[in-house]
């Protein structure tokens, strides 16, 4: 089976004495949308950040589209792919953060064309039409030349999504993309993400938006204390969560 986009096997991660991921495994097919839910501090962000090397794992194996990003040998030494390859593999994944991380000294358009030009070496003339198309797609053509400081949170997050898409990733990772937004602004971001899902983007989404998880995700994984305690199709999960802690968590959310 080589159409697996992500294969994470037995990931372990500790911060000092604190074991944050205790053998987390996940396989993700092309075009799948997976929602990662669970209480705060359960390791959801850390899991996502390990997949694209924002954090390094202590043990386990990560494969992205059949290429090995990190692996652990029999002696327990974890090794990452050498640098240029590591970078190339990680570039297959775009990421959207809770706090946007837009570049404040660049306009919206410059934010989007920056990486295609500096990283991929594309020419401005070929990137700008693409960037403009992406801006139209997220409904922000009018903000092309505005600085991020002038945008609302929802607009910033849509620019961040467009910026990630400009690198043409095969997988998109979202880490609580709407958690920093005023409630009335979450809708516009979720709508953009929903459209992306409809175009069969492979998406791994950490979220507290249960409505979104239920309607858009194919599968839900529920994390607690550094482990995946439940992993099921979204419809099944929301109809009757099996694990007591998942049930308690859902009751709390509604």
């Amino acid at each position: 089976m080589n159409d697996k986009m992500i294969k994470a096997h037995a990931l372990h991660k500790r911060f000092g004495q604190h074991e944050v991921l205790k053998s987390v495994s996940l396989e993700m097919g092309k075009g799948e949308v997976i929602a990662v839910i669970g209480p705060s501090g359960s390791g959801k962000s850390t899991f996502l950040r390990c997949l694209n090397h924002l954090e390094t794992i202590d043990a386990g194996r990560i494969e992205i589209e059949g290429e090995v990003l990190a692996d652990t040998d029999a002696a327990g030494h974890c090794r990452y792919a050498p640098d240029p390859e590591l970078r190339r593999i990680c570039r297959r994944m775009g990421m959207v953060f809770q706090h946007f991380n837009l570049f404040p000294h660049m306009t919206v358009l410059q934010n989007i064309i920056e990486a295609p030009i500096t990283v991929k070496g594309m020419r401005r003339e070929e990137v700008i039409p693409k960037a403009e198309a992406l801006l139209a797609k997220v409904g922000l053509s009018a903000k092309r030349d505005a600085y991020p400081g002038r945008l609302s949170g929802g607009q910033k997050q849509r620019v961040a999504i467009a910026r990630a898409l400009a690198m043409e990733p095969d997988i998109m990772l979202f880490d609580e993309p709407t958690s920093a937004l005023d409630p009335e602004l979450t809708g516009e971001v979720l709508r953009t993400m929903r459209e992306l899902a409809e175009e069969h983007m492979t998406m791994l989404v950490v979220t507290h938006e249960m409505g979104f998880a239920r309607e858009v995700a194919n599968r839900v994984i529920f994390m607690d204390q550094g482990q995946i305690v439940e992993e099921r199709p979204a419809a099944e999960f929301f109809a009757s969560p099996a694990h007591p802690r998942a049930r308690a968590f859902l009751d709390n959310m509604l």
Binding site: R87, R91, F97, N101, F103, A115, T118, V119, A164
Partner: peptide, 25 residues
Amino acid sequence: RGQYEGAKVLGMNYSQTMRRIVLPQ
């Protein structure tokens, strides 16, 4: 730190991140 992470997930290396993102700010 988010600026470095934003640059890193876009594939930028150390010198690109410094030159284009960190130093101008």
